[in-house]
Design a binder for these strands. Sequence first.
DNA 1: TTGAAAGCGGTACCAC
DNA 2: GTGGTACCGCTTTCAA
Lengths: 330, 330
Amino acid sequence: MARATIKTVAQAAGVSISSVSRALNGQTSNPDTVARVRAAAAQVGYLPSAAAQTLKTRHTGQIAFAMEDIGNPAYLAMVRAIQPLLRSAGYRLLLHSTGADVGEEIQVLESLNQHYVDGLVLCPIRVTDRHLAALAQTAVPVVVIGSLPETVDVDAVRADSRTGTRLAVEHLAAAGCRDIALVNGPADTTPGSARYAGYVDGLRSAGLPVRDELVRFTNFHIAGGLEATKDLLAGTPIDGLVGANDRIAIGAMQALREAGRVVPRDVKVVGIDDTELAATAYPPLTSVDLGAAQRGQLAAQLLLDRLAGRAAARTRVAVEPSLNIRESSR
Amino acid sequence: MARATIKTVAQAAGVSISSVSRALNGQTSNPDTVARVRAAAAQVGYLPSAAAQTLKTRHTGQIAFAMEDIGNPAYLAMVRAIQPLLRSAGYRLLLHSTGADVGEEIQVLESLNQHYVDGLVLCPIRVTDRHLAALAQTAVPVVVIGSLPETVDVDAVRADSRTGTRLAVEHLAAAGCRDIALVNGPADTTPGSARYAGYVDGLRSAGLPVRDELVRFTNFHIAGGLEATKDLLAGTPIDGLVGANDRIAIGAMQALREAGRVVPRDVKVVGIDDTELAATAYPPLTSVDLGAAQRGQLAAQLLLDRLAGRAAARTRVAVEPSLNIRESSR
DNA sequence: TTGAAAGCGGTACCAC
DNA sequence: GTGGTACCGCTTTCAA
């Protein structure tokens, strides 16, 4: 059988399509009509076409969330925070995993002009000129989770990962570490450069020298952390290590184990993001909480406000980091 | 400035809207017109409206994937396998995390009739009558990853988790374990009951008795595995343990550690799904590979075939399990 | 309160 | 090859 449209319902109920639309959207007061239409709709199994509604009303009821990699539990925490907020506001959440590919991120931004969503939460790990250009002319509201130049007229929620990394280093120094390594993500990413800066801050404030041989750049995955740490251990002795995220830190702990170094006795380790991985790692991983869930929540709220026309001027929010101390650094 | 539509482009190029449509969709052969239209489109920043195209052409270019919980790395593997296939076929992937809530799963199924996607890959962990009813009258093709009654006219790809669990038990028995526990997911889920059956199969084939005190039912999360295993250890001594998925097994290893039992010396542990977690756990976790990536790939291919009208009759595929032996059971 | 009709932005058929 | 036009399914004015 062909799909039921508003016409089908109108015929079944013996009214015009206008009346069907009104009855179903609560725009009429005649209870008899409403009842007849409701019954007819149920009977023919009518559901309004999303496309037609969108075309007419100019909104889709969909919001997109674009991140680098769904496998990263930090994003998972954000999704978990965002989903219920949007859902209760009547929006459906679309997830895009862009694979840290600038081209794909831009594509997502540009395709917004096709109006297949009403808004976007974007988590770029790099911000290029192409991003800025695309952001400048999107057709729908965008909220960025991450750092953005002051000049850009887009709402943003950011973590303070520089301070977070400093906290990690200071914690290790206070625990007696003197040769503190940093296994970082790519240097050309926003989090990568912020974390390096925070690492240097931490060493300075602890009165320790900055030594290049203690720093490695890799990707934000477990395997990256593992390899980079192996390489690191082949060079200099260390007694403390900061992983630029929990996945790197867990890879690092694996490398340490393979090298026969005991965590935390021989080397104390700290991760960043305080994801699910940290608490369940062995040993349980000390980690800097950058407020992923909170950032997600704030971003979603900001976007909803904008969509509702409730939003004020361009908003910038930063979330404070905190340290969650566990076995790996005690 | 108002959004550019096909009319804007037509005016700018000095042609009719029909010509714009044809030029942009490669339906015309006059290179001059094509060039003029292309230039005009680029100049006014035109992108066709997804809603209007959908309304007219009756397809959306979107495919949904509904799972219980994006946090489960088994689904992650599926998503990773599905995404590139769909993308290269020109589809965008929408992810739904239903939270194992039957109502929400049904809602997803029913909302398919709103035609906001062209197809769905569904991973139900329970299959109720309401599922079957909703499946029977969806407006778009659906492929289920999981078990479905033979009578249901829907394509499905399933794992053989019963055999998989049997393999795990036999492996432990062969390694000398005699008191083999099962920490299972909920009994009323499809995977839960299949894994229990496989556990019994394995004990039988190893000539071991089935003892209720060695079995616990919990949820499919790390915390569930942790708590259930604590409870288990308070009862009977064990020397082997099967977790109904990797997350449960990792929780179990944590409980064992807290109880002072060394894995694998005192208790050998096997997980199921062979996710990323298994290889990076400590000790590295032996796990049954149920072919998540392969299932995702098959499901996506099946769906694409159906969408292209290439599909044959209703298809049912099962993927063979295999055991991946690591430290935790050696 | 209700029905007729315009129009959202495209596609595709029809003459020319 | 090109332009005019009907139509996809819905919402919303406007008159009756």
